[in-house]
Structure formats: structure tokens, C-alpha cells
Simulated assay, not measured.
Amino acid sequence: MNVNLAPKPINFKFGEYINKGFELLKKDFGSVFVGFLVTFLMSIIPFCGILAVGNYYKYLRKLNKNQSVSAGEIFDFKDFMPYFILQLIIIAGVFVLYIPMIFFGVFAGITSNNSGEPNPGMMIFMFPYLFFMIATLYYFLLKGFYMIPLISFKEITDLKTAWNISKVMTKGNLWSILLFAFVVGILSQIGILACGIGIFITIPFMYAANYFAYEDAIQQIEYDEITEIGSKNEF
């Protein structure tokens, strides 16, 4: 079946994704947890962190659709290159943003007073730039929110294409996605209260909720060319 993509702004269903994430945990917590442990182990391998997460979402997708799946499938390196390049781009971007901070630090040391305290005037420039740096990082991370499912679910290995599609999908939804990430992040950290051990129970929820956000978004931009042709012929 030939399935194509028609990128458009996504109808972001905040509460639905959280509820479905909890439902998947209740339905098959053992499998979700084992998959998370395998993902954690694979993430230890250098430059395989995002790849492991992308494969985990594939695993959760099969699990949610009641398909036969093994946690061993997470150790799949088929999508290594696009995720490897993506990580290099992220590292390079963060490094470029930090360069002015290094200069600020050096200049502040050079212009410090006799007691060794940094020049207060430098703080006037440093704090606004720090805000700009954080805002820039969040902007690009949010605009690229759907790149992982586009690579893992739709096998779009060209990062420029995945980025452009994700930009369209997130249009008008940045605040909703940011709030969703914040709420899910808070819920996933609740396990720290249980002597830290509980975090291994609550963190899988974060991935489950994200999976449903990704799955729903992909379904919204998919269209079946054969079905569409048939529906047009009916008229």
C-alpha cells in the first residue's frame, strides 16, 4: 500500500497523549519496562542515545498494535547514520552558541577589579545572551519535535526533509508541545521521591506519552493514495 505524507500543522491532543501513555503502562508494564532497560543499555554506547530512543518508539508502536515484538529489536543500527549526523549537528549547534559565553567569561576575568570580582558591566551582556541561548535551543528542539518519528516510523533519512516537515507540523503548536514536555517531564521525575528507584517506573511513562504524540501526528499527515483515488472516483 502506497502511503504518502501531506505535512500540515498538527491538532495537538495534549491530554489524550498523557492518558494513553498511562493506559499502555497499565496494559503491559512489563514489556514497556524491559524495552526501557534495553534502551538505557544501548544509550551507553557512544552516539547511540537518540538511535536507541528512536528504536524504542518503534518497539512501543508494535507493542501498542499487539504485534509480535522483542526488546532485542531495539539493538538495531539501521538508522544509525541519520541519528549520528543529527547528534553531531546538535553538538555543533550547542558549541557555537557557547562560544560567545567563553569570550564573555574571558573578558570578564580580564576586566575584573583588584578584588577579583568580575566587571558588573559584563553581566549586563551575559545574562541577556544566556536567555537568548536557552530560547534558541528550545526553539530548535521544539521545531524538530517530530523528526524522530519521521526517521523511525517513515524512514525519512534526509535530515533536511525531516526538519522541513517537522517545522510545518509544529506550526502554531510550540507552546502546547513545550507545556506537554514540561508536564510529562515532571510526571516522569516523580519516581525520584521513591528513593530514586521509582524513577525507573515513571520514566517509561514519558516515552509512552511521547510515542502517542508521535503516532497521532504521523497519522494526521498520512494519506493513502489508493484510497484517495478511489474516493475521488466515487464522485
Rank of each mutant, 00 (worst) to 15 (best):
L5F: 10
L5K: 05
K8C: 09
K8A: 10
P9S: 11
I10A: 06
N11S: 15
K13V: 02
G15D: 07
I18L: 14
I18V: 03
I18A: 02
K20H: 08
F22M: 06
L25Y: 04
K26C: 05
K27M: 06
K27N: 08
G30S: 15
S31T: 11
V32D: 04
G35V: 05
L37S: 02
L41N: 03
S43C: 11
I45D: 07
C48E: 06
G49M: 13
I50A: 10
A52K: 05
G54P: 01
Y56S: 04
Y56R: 04
R61H: 08
K62T: 01
K62V: 01
N64V: 06
S68Q: 12
V69D: 01
S70V: 05
A71S: 11
A71G: 12
E73P: 04
I74K: 04
F75M: 12
F77Y: 09
K78Q: 13
F80K: 09
Y83H: 12
F84A: 09
I85H: 08
L86G: 08
A92N: 08
A92T: 09
A92D: 03
V94D: 09
V94P: 00
V96K: 07
L97Q: 09
Y98V: 13
I99D: 00
I99N: 03
I99H: 04
P100T: 04
P100L: 07
M101H: 12
I102N: 02
I102A: 13
G105D: 10
F107T: 11
A108F: 03
A108C: 03
G109S: 12
T111S: 15
T111V: 04
N113L: 13
S115D: 15
S115K: 08
E117T: 14
P118A: 02
P120L: 06
G121P: 00
G121W: 11
M122T: 09
I124S: 06
F125G: 02
M126P: 00
Y129C: 05
Y129Q: 09
F131K: 09
F131G: 09
F132I: 15
F132A: 14
A135F: 15
L141R: 07
F145D: 00
Y146V: 03
L150C: 04
S152H: 03
S152Y: 03
I156E: 02
T157V: 13
L159S: 04
K160P: 00
K160T: 11
T161W: 00
T161R: 15
T161F: 00
W163T: 11
N164G: 05
N164E: 15
I165D: 01
M169R: 06
T170R: 08
K171C: 00
N173H: 01
L174T: 12
I177E: 02
L178W: 11
V183Q: 06
V184H: 02
G185A: 11
I186Q: 06
I186L: 14
G196K: 09
I199T: 14
I199Y: 07
F200E: 08
T202D: 05
F205T: 05
F205Q: 00
M206R: 08
M206D: 10
Y207L: 11
Y207M: 04
A209D: 02
N210A: 02
N210K: 13
Y211Q: 03
A213T: 01
Y214C: 00
A217F: 05
A217C: 08
I218Q: 01
Y223F: 15
D224N: 15
I226R: 12
I229W: 00
I229N: 08
S231R: 15
S231H: 14
K232F: 13
N233W: 08
E234T: 14
E234S: 10
E234R: 12
F235M: 09
